[in-house]
Write a protein that binds this DNA or RNA. Structure first.
Length: 454
RNA sequence: CGGGGCGUAGCUCAGCUUGGUAGAGCGCUUGCUUCGGGAGCAAGAGGCCGGAGGUUCAAAUCCUCUCGCCCCGACCA
């Protein structure tokens, strides 16, 4: 750790390899889970309230959060799904720093264009720097220093890194923080056609990524904003509490986004628009097929051609021996925002309801009677066996009353609750409850283990 | 960046109008009793009332400045 702390290279996260492994199971009595019974006054929307109440995050400043163990755990799960789908789509992971030199941004002309959203700082030598709000210049610099030939294309480099945008008004907890974790990928291609193909690969990767998290993401044509360019889609996930109204063709509900043969051209033809771009009079979708809802933007992809490569001299020699600027695109996913968005889409009046793929623990084991020898014996034994079976489990072994334990488990939203109580302990059974459906079944310890060991 | 609101115990808040030695509930500690959906009783710990100036015999309370946070709008992964 000292090595990591000494630089700004990678302020978070385990190496990729470890993230595949199961997490260390935890006894709640030894964990750090500062849950709150009451709703902190600062939180307005439900995901923010629940993240604070479940002890996932803690605000340090406006729009800047500490990630506590439970939240950090989820953040890493989300990050890992994003990473795996980027890798699968052929993107290659790198890591660029959070701090960038102003000189790079002067080359693209964005140092002046970006405005107050960009946090500007100076080092001891009065050198102008900035905390990166995005990394087009940085990655283009990497490219131009190392790539000379079209034979090295296509190339897609991505990283998952903290960014800072000095929002005038941060809000909604981690959904719109100033500091946020983002995956951004950058594609480099010889010509527009190849660039468009790279764009489509990311388009599909995004749909799969969100699908794996149990989210329905609707791709919508979008404005390009300060990134620039002429082809842009944003991905909105549906949640009752979404920021903006969205309208889309019912066909999106019928598509299996996890399929391997998604037809991007077809998908792009389907109608979907946020309210500001939706004109009911001009909408091509007949009313009976038009769906509406509220959306949270969790991803945004751009194809902007030679905007940066031309300005910064990122060129390659083509097969004809001519030097041309590369065609580029950039592809963002708001990783930390997704944690909030996931809760917006998955909660009830009692708390969070995690999809299994991103749950901080798969199983919450509750010993109802910590003072009862029989119960404790059964629960300790089950905990050890779940651990041996590499099931991610949080074991509530605290000396609390039943109600408090159930309330805590419901709040933090682990998909499965396993309850050991005096009644079942005598009969050799435990209770298994689905957090999502509430369905309860009674079964033997062996049957339970068989259910989760896989 | 315009408009509004709020800073008092770890959390939610009362007290401020009308200045007079700082409160409640939850949480925390200890003991006893409880024990299948956020237990009861008892005894405790815990606050420079965001900060700095000022007015006053006296300021959480009145005045000025400042810092922070939240909400609405405009803007955004």
């Amino acid at each position: 750790m000292p090595f990591v702390a000494a630089g700004h290279a990678r302020p978070y996260g385990p190496p990729v390899k470890e993230a595949h492994e199961h997490r260390v199971p935890m006894r709640l009595s030894r964990y750090f889970l500062p849950v709150l019974k009451e709703v902190p006054a600062e939180a307005e929307i439900v995901s923010h309230q629940l993240m604070l109440r479940a002890g996932m995050v803690q605000q340090l400043q406006a729009g800047i959060y500490n990630w506590l163990p439970l939240g950090w755990n989820v953040l890493q799960k989300v990050e890992q799904i994003v990473r795996e789908e980027q890798n699968r789509a052929g993107a290659i992971e790198i890591l660029m720093p959070t701090i960038q030199p102003a000189s790079l941004w002067r080359e693209s002309g964005r140092y002046d264009a970006y405005g107050k959203e960009m946090l500007r700082i100076k080092d001891r030598g009065e050198r102008e720097m900035l905390y990166g709000p995005t990394n087009e210049e940085n990655v283009t610099d990497i490219f131009r220093k190392h790539v000379r030939s079209y034979r090295q294309l296509p190339l897609n480099l991505y990283h998952i890194q903290w960014k800072f945008r000095d929002e005038v008004r941060p809000r909604f907890g981690v959904m719109r923080g100033r500091e946020f974790l983002m995956k951004d990928a950058y594609s480099f291609d010889l010509d527009v056609e190849a660039g468009a193909a790279a764009f489509d690969r990311m388009f599909v990767a995004y749909l799969k990524t969100f699908k794996r998290m149990g989210l329905t993401a609707i791709p919508m044509r979008a404005e390009t904003g300060p990134i620039g360019g002429d082809m842009s889609y944003e991905f909105q996930i549906l949640a009752q509490t979404g920021e903006s109204a969205v309208y889309f063709d019912q066909a999106f509900e019928e598509i299996d986004f996890s399929a391997d043969d998604l037809d991007v051209a077809q998908l792009k033809k389907l109608y979907a628009a946020a309210d500001e771009l939706h004109d009911p009079a001009a909408c091509p979708v007949p009313p009976e097929r038009l769906r509406s809802g509220r959306g949270i933007e969790v991803g945004h992809i751009f194809f902007f051609g030679t905007k940066y490569s031309a300005a910064m001299g990122a060129t390659v020699l083509g097969p004809d021996g001519k030097e041309v600027p590369v065609e580029m695109g950039s592809y963002g996913i708001g990783v930390s925002r997704l944690v909030g968005a996931l809760i917006e889409a998955n909660h009830d009046e009692k708390g969070i309801v995690w999809p299994e793929s991103v749950a901080p623990f798969r199983v919450g084991l509750i010993n109802l009677r910590a003072d009862d020898e029989l119960c404790r014996g059964v629960a300790d034994d089950l905990y050890a066996k779940l651990e041996a079976a590499k099931v991610e489990v949080l074991y509530d072994d605290r000396e609390e009353r039943a109600g408090a334990k159930f309330a805590t488990m419901d709040l933090i939203g682990l998909p499965w609750q396993v309850t050991v109580g005096p009644r079942g302990a005598k009969a050799g059974t435990v209770e298994l409850k689905s957090r999502r459906t509430g369905a309860v079944e009674e079964l033997s310890v062996d049957a339970l283990l068989a259910r989760f060991a896989a």
